[in-house]
Each structure stands twice: as structure tokens, then as C-alpha cells.
């Protein structure tokens, strides 16, 4: 029991749990980014204007960054 509560083990558990939370948040954020892409595409279809393409591109860039976030969180 004492071995389990050494400083190294506590640190390991703490950062392990933190990492799980970070990854969980990143996955949730990715889902949110997907919804944003879907909604921006839907908005652009609903009201079409010449600037809409740029908005859709921005939403995809945001999605790409959310994927990057997951990868970084997994690599911690």
C-alpha cells in the first residue's frame, strides 16, 4: 500500500488522469468543430454569397486544428 502512494506513483496517477481529461476535452472539441463545419456549410447553402467559401475554409481550418489538438493531447 505504501509503495502505491510514493511521490512518483502519485505524480503518475495525477498526470494520467489529467491526460485522460485533456484527451476527452479534445475529442469533445473535435465533435464541436465538426458541428461548426456542418452548420457553416448549411448556412452557406441557405444564404449564398461570394464570401461564403472563405467561411467554409475557416471552419475546416478550425477542424484541422482540433484534430491537431487531439494528437498533441495523445502525445503528452
Amino acid at each position: 500500500m505504501n509503495n502505491l502512494l510514493t511521490n512518483n506513483n502519485l505524480e503518475f496517477y495525477f498526470f494520467g488522469i489529467t491526460k485522460v481529461f485533456f484527451v476527452l476535452f479534445a475529442v469533445l472539441y473535435f465533435i464541436f468543430a465538426l458541428i461548426v463545419v456542418k452548420q457553416v456549410t448549411s448556412m452557406s447553402r441557405s444564404v449564398s454569397d461570394k464570401f461564403n467559401v472563405v467561411l467554409v475554409i475557416f471552419s475546416f481550418i478550425h477542424l484541422a486544428f482540433s484534430v491537431l489538438l487531439i494528437l498533441i493531447m495523445l502525445g503528452l
Binding site: F25, A33, S59, H62, S66, L69, I72, G75, L76
Partner: peptide
């Protein structure tokens, strides 16, 4: 690395708020 990912996350939140 944790702090870096936190900063990245913060900037994404900022971007999506403005967007």
C-alpha cells in the same frame, strides 16, 4: 507540453468565439 496544449486550446476557444 501540457501548458502548450492549454494555450493552443485557449486560442481555438478564442477563434471559435469570434467566428
Amino acid at each position: 507540453q501540457y501548458r502548450f496544449s492549454l494555450v493552443l486550446f485557449w486560442y481555438l476557444i478564442t477563434f471559435i468565439f469570434a467566428f
